[in-house]
Simulated assay, not measured.
Amino acid sequence: MLAGCAPSGTPAASATAVANQGYQSGDGSTRKWAVADRSEPVALAGTDFAGTTQDLTTWRGDVVVLNSWYAACPPCRAEAPDLVAFANDYAASGVHVLGINGTDDVGAAQAFERTFSIPYPSLADTGGHAIAALQGAVPVQAVPTTVVLDREGRVAARILGLADPSTLRGLVDDVLAESATPAAGATAGATATP
């Protein structure tokens, strides 16, 4: 059984949690949204653990993978090497990865990033603003949760719990492939107006 984590006392900690451990089951299940069923673009910005401002709007036109995590979460630690490999392998394809950490202080988060040689930034989200921004578009019910955004910034897919590397790559490949074709309703030769 694969597991997701939720700090004790959070809404995600429930009867399904492992007794006194703060874990909520996340079964690695996926959900995909058809292009026509996708919500508005996710508006997400914040400061990463290095003190740099990150804003998803700067990555519009590229596929983005969001991953919620925290340092003491066993499934987060288990998937970290695969996410590092994924981020490195897909960077040349214009895919960006952004972590979201609503639990750790700077020291714990940076230690995790150093331990696993994380090549992408993670938002410091102890105020819960990033997760709240996602809740309008996609339920984030366990940590880790991985969300794939299309080139317009809309939620295209979600993995609840530990992300299987081949599943994540398949979901992102699907979004990259659909993004190579004109968007629904677009006409050949159409130009954007300012």
Rank of each mutant, 00 (worst) to 15 (best):
39 S>E: 07
183 A>E: 06
155 V>L: 11
23 Y>K: 08
104 D>H: 05
47 T>I: 08
85 A>D: 09
121 P>H: 03
49 F>Y: 12
43 A>K: 15
94 G>E: 09
25 S>P: 12
83 L>E: 00
152 E>Q: 15
33 W>R: 13
85 A>Y: 02
24 Q>N: 14
45 A>N: 12
18 V>E: 04
139 P>S: 13
117 S>F: 07
7 P>Y: 03
39 S>D: 14
75 P>E: 09
193 T>N: 14
26 G>K: 09
56 L>C: 10
83 L>M: 12
65 V>Y: 11
158 R>C: 06
8 S>Y: 01
178 E>M: 05
168 L>Q: 08
104 D>V: 01
106 V>F: 01
129 H>S: 15
127 G>A: 15
55 D>V: 12
79 E>R: 04
152 E>I: 05
52 T>W: 00
138 V>D: 00
11 P>A: 13
149 L>D: 02
157 A>G: 10
163 A>W: 05
20 N>K: 09
86 F>W: 11
40 E>C: 06
70 Y>M: 05
71 A>I: 01
159 I>G: 05
113 E>I: 03
67 N>F: 03
109 A>K: 04
162 L>K: 13
87 A>N: 11
185 G>L: 04
141 Q>G: 15
32 K>W: 13
152 E>N: 12
72 A>Y: 09
110 Q>S: 13
114 R>Q: 15
64 V>P: 05
165 P>Q: 09
27 D>P: 07
12 A>T: 01
35 V>M: 09
33 W>A: 10
171 L>F: 07
144 P>M: 05
194 P>N: 13
107 G>W: 09
140 V>L: 07
17 A>F: 08
83 L>A: 03
1 M>W: 07
83 L>S: 03
67 N>I: 05
136 G>C: 02
125 D>K: 02
28 G>Q: 08
111 A>T: 12
154 R>G: 10
13 A>Y: 09
146 T>F: 08
118 I>P: 00
174 D>M: 00
74 P>N: 10
64 V>R: 10
59 W>Q: 08
138 V>S: 03
177 A>I: 06
110 Q>N: 14
25 S>D: 12
170 G>K: 10
125 D>H: 02
148 V>Q: 01
186 A>D: 13
173 D>N: 11
54 Q>M: 09
112 F>T: 01
27 D>T: 14
121 P>K: 04
67 N>T: 14
177 A>H: 08
134 L>E: 01
180 A>P: 00
49 F>L: 01
14 S>N: 15
185 G>C: 00
181 T>P: 00
185 G>H: 02
15 A>T: 10
12 A>R: 13
103 T>L: 04
6 A>G: 15
71 A>M: 00
76 C>R: 12
40 E>Y: 10
101 N>Y: 03
173 D>W: 02
